[in-house]
Amino acid sequence: MAALPDSNRSPTLEEGLRFLGTDRVELKWVEDLAGGRSMIDSAPDSAVLVTEALPLRANLSVLENMAIVPQYRHDTPYEAAADQAWQLLSRLEVTAMAFKRDPDLTSEERFQAKFLRAIMAAPPIIVIDRPGQLLPDTHYPPFLGRCLATLENHFEQCWIVDYLWNEPLYAPR
């Protein structure tokens, strides 16, 4: 998948959807929960998981949740770490959620916060585990595609682990 013609503009839903299933964003189909677990286990240890089971820190805002990663791992001063986090939030056009805490987020915002936090850790692979659980009220494949295409320069590789019976949802409509 080539980069978007203009990397500053947001991708359309169609462009986002086309981004899924490429070598950068692999779709991993599983038949059941056990299959999902073994698929996640097959990812390298350094992969970071975006899943319903791993929440944000409840007493920190989205910005702080993201900033804490470089602050802890690279001893980055808070201002620089928060600036780095703010740039990602701006890229996704979700700065309005920067100072919200987990209970105040919609499921879409919560997913975006978790994904951006994963990006801050700069892992070789980000694994999105069963996106249907993270985005229960959203037609999620175009939403995921658009988020990932917008942030394509900020992550190495992404796996989307989803149930086989959700495959039709990923077809263009």
Binding site: V48, L54, P55, R57, N59, Y72, A118
Partner: peptide, 25 residues
Amino acid sequence: TEVALMNVHNEIKALEDLGVDAMQL
């Protein structure tokens, strides 16, 4: 209360997944 809730809600594991040691942080 906060630590017990962190434990219940898996927040400690979430931090560890990001390479952040909850004990230290």
